[in-house]
C-alpha cells in the first residue's frame, strides 16, 4: 500500500521570524483508507557544532562532537490514532515560533563547523507490521531586523608592492598600482556587496581578479576553542589583462543559507570576511582582506 506523506508550508519562500506562526498542511495521500496509530509533528531548531581537527586532533574531532544547542522544540499531535480515507488528505497545522525564557532564535545558517537549522518532522505511526512513515521539511528563520540604522562605512584601499605584508622578497615582485574601494564593510545581508577596483598600472599582465567570501567560525568546547576560516564562494570580477585605468565594478550577492548576520554567542561565533584576490600572469597572488559585519534590516 503506497502511502506518501508530505509537509507543505504556506509561505512560498519558507522564511519566518521569531514570533510568527509557522503554518502549513500535512499532506497524506494513499490509495485506500488506512489505519494508523497517530500522526505527530515536531518542530525543532538546533545549533550543531563541529569540532575542528585543529583544536582536538583528527580522531577526537571525528568521534566527539559538542552537544547540539537546542533553540526551540515543540510537538503537536496532528491526528489521533484512527483511519484516514483513501485519496488525498490535508491536515492543517500551526506552530508559533516562540521561545522560552530569553532564548534567541538565531538565523538559519549552514556552515562547516556551525550549523543552525530549523525543521519540521512529521511522524506517522502504524501498526507493528507496517513501517512508520516520517517526513522532514526544513524552514528558514531570519533574525529580527536590527533596530539601529546601518551607516555605510566605505573603505578605500591601495595595493602596491610596498603595501604588501607576508612576502619574502619584495624585489622580485613586479611593479603595480591597484586602487579601489568597498562601498561598505558593514553590509545589509539582503543587498549585494558593491565597490570598485581600478588597475592603474601593472608591469605584468593581470590574469584574474576575484572576490573570495570567507566565513570565520569559532567553536568553543571544554578544551578550548578553534577559529576556522573557510571559503564560501569565489566570484571572479575580472578575467585576463584588463584595461588600465578603467574601473571594474565589485558586485557580490550574499548567498542565502550560507551567510547570516554576524553572530557572536557564548558558545560560538560566526563572522565573515572578504578577500580581494588579484592573480598576476606569473601566478603571483595578491590578497587584500576586509572583515565584514553583516546585518539584517
Amino acid at each position: 500500500m503506497s502511502v506518501s506523506l508530505d509537509i507543505k508550508l504556506k509561505r512560498a519562500n519558507k522564511v519566518y521570524h521569531e514570533g510568527e506562526t509557522v503554518a502549513g498542511v500535512v499532506m497524506l495521500s494513499c490509495k485506500e483508507a488506512m489505519q494508523h496509530h497517530g500522526i505527530s509533528l515536531t518542530m525543532e531548531g538546533i545549533v550543531n557544532l563541529q569540532l575542528s581537527s585543529k583544536s582536538v586532533g583528527v580522531f577526537e574531532a571525528f568521534y566527539n562532537s559538542v552537544k547540539p544547542i537546542q533553540l526551540i522544540s515543540s510537538n503537536i499531535e496532528v491526528a489521533k490514532a484512527g483511519k484516514v480515507p483513501g485519496g488525498k488528505t490535508e491536515i492543517p497545522f500551526e506552530f508559533p515560533l516562540l521561545t522560552k525564557g530569553n532564548k534567541v532564535l538565531y538565523e538559519t545558517y549552514h556552515g562547516v563547523f556551525v550549523n543552525i537549522q530549523y525543521s519540521l518532522r512529521c511522524d506517522l505511526k502504524r501498526s507493528l507490521l507496517a513501517k512508520d512513515l516520517s517526513r522532514t521539511c526544513e524552514f528558514i528563520v531570519h533574525s529580527q531586523p536590527q533596530k539601529s540604522k546601518v551607516v555605510p562605512t566605505p573603505v578605500n584601499f591601495t595595493i602596491t608592492p610596498d603595501t604588501l605584508q607576508n612576502t619574502r622578497e619584495k624585489s622580485s615582485l613586479p611593479k603595480f598600482l591597484i586602487r579601489g574601494h568597498l562601498d561598505a564593510t558593514n553590509c545589509v545581508i539582503s543587498q549585494p556587496l558593491t565597490g570598485e577596483v581600478v588597475v592603474e598600472n601593472s608591469e605584468v599582465p593581470i590574469k584574474s581578479i576575484e572576490l573570495q567570501l570567507v566565513r570565520v567560525e569559532t567553536c568553543g568546547c571544554a578544551e578550548g576553542y578553534a577559529r576556522d576560516a573557510t571559503e564560501i564562494q569565489n566570484i571572479q570580477i575580472a578575467e585576463g589583462d584588463v584595461c588600465h585605468g578603467l574601473s571594474i565594478p565589485i558586485y557580490m550577492v550574499f548567498p542565502r543559507l550560507f551567510t547570516c548576520p554576524t553572530l557572536e554567542t557564548t558558545n560560538f561565533k560566526v563572522e565573515f570576511e572578504i578577500n580581494i584576490v588579484i592573480v598576476l600572469h606569473d601566478d603571483h597572488l595578491i590578497t587584500e582582506n576586509f572583515p565584514l559585519k553583516l546585518c539584517r534590516v
Binding site: 570567507v214 573557510t230 564560501i232 571572479q236 548567498p255 584576490v277 597572488l285
Partner: peptide, 18 residues
C-alpha cells in the same frame, strides 16, 4: 584554479562551493 601555492588563510581540505 585561482588559488595556487601560497594561498593565505584558506583551508584546502574543506571547501564548500555552491
Amino acid at each position: 584554479k585561482a588559488l595556487g601555492p601560497g594561498s593565505s588563510a584558506v583551508s584546502e581540505k574543506v571547501r564548500t562551493r555552491l
